[in-house]
C-alpha cells in the first residue's frame, strides 16, 4: 500500500542504498567473485521463486567524488508484497543477508524481522518510474512457461505422425507438465 510507485502489475521494485563499513568492501568484492563461480547463494535466493532479477553493486564515487564510505546499491524485481517478501528472506536466507548487508553501518540483523523491515524502510527509495516488459507475469508463471514451451514444440512436431491413442497419452503428459509448477 505504501509505495505505489514501486508496483507494476505483479512486479514490485525494491531499491536500497546502504553505507559500507571500512574494509568490508573487500569482503563484498571477494563474495561477488565467489558467487560468480559458485551459484550457491543465488540458488537459495532463487528457490523462493519470487525474484525475477536482482543485483548488488558497490559504488565508490557518488556525485563525482569519493565519499567517506562506499555504498552498496541493491535493486530487485520481485512478486508479492513488500512485507511477505522481506519476511521470507529473513526466514530462509539469513546467512546470505548477513554476508551482504552485514557490511552496512547500522545493520540490525535479521531477527526480529520488524527491526530489519524498519531498517529497509529507512534505506529504500521509491521509484519515480518503474516498468516491466511483462507486468502480469510472476516469476513462477515465467519459469512454468519457459519449461512448457519446448514441450509444446516437441509435441507439435511429433503429433502429425501419432495415432489418436498415442496422441491422447502425450497430450495428457503435456498438460500435466504445463500445469505443474517448476
Amino acid at each position: 500500500m505504501k509505495r505505489a510507485g514501486n508496483r507494476r502489475g505483479q512486479a514490485t521494485a525494491l531499491t536500497i542504498l546502504t553505507p559500507v563499513r571500512p574494509r568490508w568492501h573487500l569482503w563484498l568484492r571477494a563474495w561477488f567473485a565467489l558467487a560468480r563461480v559458485l551459484p550457491l547463494q543465488r540458488w537459495t535466493l532463487l528457490r523462493l521463486q519470487r525474484i525475477h532479477f536482482a543485483r548488488f553493486a558497490l559504488v565508490s564515487r557518488l556525485d563525482g567524488r569519493r565519499l567517506h564510505s562506499r555504498h552498496l546499491l541493491f535493486e530487485s524485481n520481485f512478486n508479492g508484497n513488500w512485507h511477505s517478501y522481506l519476511e521470507a528472506f529473513c526466514q530462509v536466507f539469513p546467512k546470505g543477508m548477513w554476508g551482504l548487508w552485514g557490511s552496512a553501518w547500522g545493520w540490525p540483523g535479521v531477527a526480529p524481522v520488524k527491526g530489519f523491515k524498519d531498517w529497509v524502510e529507512r534505506n529504500e527509495f521509491e521509484a519515480s518510474h518503474y516498468w516491466s516488459a511483462y507486468p502480469e507475469a510472476t516469476t513462477r508463471d515465467i519459469l512454468a512457461a519457459l519449461d512448457t514451451e519446448p514441450r509444446i514444440r516437441a509435441l507439435a512436431q511429433a503429433a502429425p505422425d501419432m495415432d489418436p491413442e498415442r496422441f491422447e497419452a502425450a497430450w495428457a503428459d503435456l498438460v500435466s507438465a504445463a500445469v505443474r509448477a517448476p
Binding site: A11, L17, P19, H52, L62, L67, W105, S128, Y130, W131
Partner: peptide
C-alpha cells in the same frame, strides 16, 4: 531487449550508525 527498468531519485543518504 528490455525486461525491467526504473528511475529512482536519491535525495539524500541515510546515516547508518
Amino acid at each position: 531487449g528490455l525486461h525491467f527498468a526504473r528511475w529512482v531519485i536519491v535525495p539524500h543518504l541515510e546515516y547508518g550508525a
